[in-house]
Design a protein around this nucleic acid. Sequence first.
DNA 1: CGTGATCTTGAAGGGGGTCAACTGGAGTGG
DNA 2: CCACTCCAGTTGACCCCCTTCAAGATCACG
Lengths: 269, 269
Amino acid sequence: MSTLAFPASRSVPIAPPRPSSALLATEAGAGRSTLADLLRLMGVIDSLDDGADVQPLLLRALRPGEVLFHEGGAMDAVYFVRGGTFKRVRTCEDGYEQVLDFADRGDLLGLDALGQESHPSGAVALELASVYCVPVHELHALGHRYPSFDRILHQAAARALAARDELASMMAAVAAEVRLARFLLLRSQRLAASGQSPRRFRLRMGRRDIASHLGVAHETVSRSFGALAGMGVLRVDNREVEIIDMAGLRELARSTRRPQHDGDGLRAA
Amino acid sequence: MSTLAFPASRSVPIAPPRPSSALLATEAGAGRSTLADLLRLMGVIDSLDDGADVQPLLLRALRPGEVLFHEGGAMDAVYFVRGGTFKRVRTCEDGYEQVLDFADRGDLLGLDALGQESHPSGAVALELASVYCVPVHELHALGHRYPSFDRILHQAAARALAARDELASMMAAVAAEVRLARFLLLRSQRLAASGQSPRRFRLRMGRRDIASHLGVAHETVSRSFGALAGMGVLRVDNREVEIIDMAGLRELARSTRRPQHDGDGLRAA
DNA sequence: CGTGATCTTGAAGGGGGTCAACTGGAGTGG
DNA sequence: CCACTCCAGTTGACCCCCTTCAAGATCACG
């Protein structure tokens, strides 16, 4: 039975991935692009530095499951995600794969290996994806020659730092449903920022990855999805999610573990 | 009774804080320094850029409990920790204070606010501390004029990124004692990197802060300390910690909650 | 020495981890 | 087309660990 069945449009993907450029959609591989493309991707509209449109930049495409860089692997470049979704993972010595976070359009990957000798984390494409590659040995030179590149690099680094702190909210000491609610809200906000629908979307990652990211067992994720659907804030069919009651979901995400006795959530500092 | 009593030297701090420079030890305030000092702090020994020793830099001292910058506050500078320890926190809407991580000597603070309009997290000194302040409006100029500054900035940012991923290991789905073991090992390694003793040290933070950082109740932290002491890997007296059996502690930190179900992590694309 | 914060310890109860079984879709090959 | 396998997801049952509440012990500080 399915308390959480979708209306009818099961077979139709809700948010169809916008068609990548021709050379990428066909197959995984590498292509050439320019710094100007990257700057535009990162929201630089005015003040394109002179020469940015002829400064070549490697563009790499990846198929689902393909790894952008391995954990422990040598660092050779940093990557700006142009399209698609990645998961960043760290594997414990016992084989448990910890999902650190998910990266999509505009996110910076691989910078954390700058000082180190190897990548402290790995990155795996969850769907068809493409990235701009910036070799480390060009990093400073590019930043020096193109001020706007320096700016987007710093900005992306700052975004990456802030994004990592979100993990704390996910895995904080709260009930599992609350973690899931926060996770879904974060996804929703990210999609909204990309111009996609914040209320209906398809999760790119499996339950296992979500579970790892939230710090719970994957069965608990299933149950929490069920619970949220039962409360009427969500509709769920496998990876398709529709947020019915956004306010309710927000309310849920706000709450802490403590059940409380009286009802007012207000607490003096 | 105390299964976890210290030998005798209770009143003697194990790792006495190295005396700060005179102008700082006296009281909290601000002083003047140079870029060369910062570069030396960050390990740049050769190739000091010309003029770095006359490039002025604001040095700020903080007393325990004093906040370096508030969560939500406007961003005006980034900070390199010169001495002392900070906790980075984010306060939930319900008043719960999530401890993101702890920063000490050589760590970079405040960079995550670069793109944003306000600080996504706050930083509070846990003891007498001092930081080099680099105003944001000088950031690019300094990086442009002094290549080694650009390098340490990137490197510190990378370190900050990697450090944040450690949080995942702490709050991952494992037993509380394992989290504490991992936390203590990380502290130990950090101290070792600073030239301090990795086996005996004083924790700068309270049980509550540790609990928040590990994602458990503070009572559980107490019990876990007791458990570790009972297993004979630790000796604990309040915030003084001595690691008796480093190998045993490592072994503990390694273990996961999940027993495993055969683990070839390989997956064909 | 008192006052409050921090830390420890105990008891109780539930949330979620673990194990196990079932479902359903995708891929494979007969 | 169906049998078979494999994997992702769901659901159920059990029960232990950790949260919560409460009280006591210890420490920090005026």
